[in-house]
């Protein structure tokens, strides 16, 4: 479990000892195929790390992704912004998971625990990358709209009426 934990992007830079401390607030669990780990709209108070198996992430009935070993679900809850789950996670094949309780993680953070601070810094990096990608997507999306009209104008002039 420790090895798998240390391989996660959010645990980048953690020493063996720090990882062990993080593991101490984590709980390993098993989930059978078909289990709903959490549902969209439900209150989220923990982060889930997939150690084994396949999980489907869906939003309003539409599949967003299928994730496997090493993937992290619900990391926002660690930052105290848990709130409601934005998607539903369903187990596709029997899975082994690691659950980190958000409240206990917050306690570590309050005492300036190095492991917790490193995890937060890593999560911030992951999220800033996602934000960048989202921005690009948004710009791309707007460009697409403008081009649709421009393309039509081009077509009209190409056909020369």
């Amino acid at each position: 479990m420790l090895d798998q934990l240390m391989k996660l992007p959010m645990c980048k830079g953690l020493s063996q000892g720090e990882a062990t401390e993080l593991a101490s607030i984590a709980r390993e669990s098993q989930a059978k195929k078909g289990t709903v780990l959490f549902a969209q709209g439900a209150h989220g108070d923990s982060i889930l790390v997939v150690l084994e198996g396949q999980i489907e992430v869906s939003m309003s009935g539409q599949t967003l992704a299928q994730v496997g070993e090493g993937s992290v679900l619900g990391e926002m809850s660690l930052l105290g912004e848990g709130g409601k789950r934005t998607a539903t996670a369903t187990v596709l094949s029997d899975a082994r998971l690691l659950e980190i309780d958000a409240a206990r993680f917050q306690e570590l953070l309050k005492t300036s625990h190095l492991a917790a601070l490193k995890v937060v810094a890593n999560l911030a990096q992951v999220m800033s990358k996602r934000l960048l990608a989202m921005n690009e997507k948004l710009i791309e999306g707007n460009k697409g709209k403008k081009e649709e009209l421009a393309d039509f104008q081009k077509i009209l002039s190409n056909w020369s009426f």
């Binding site: 009209l156 056909w159 009426f161």
Partner: peptide, 9 residues
């Protein structure tokens, strides 16, 4: 379509 399209644009 060309004529209607041009007017619309």
């Amino acid at each position: 379509i060309g004529r209607v399209g041009k007017a619309t644009v």
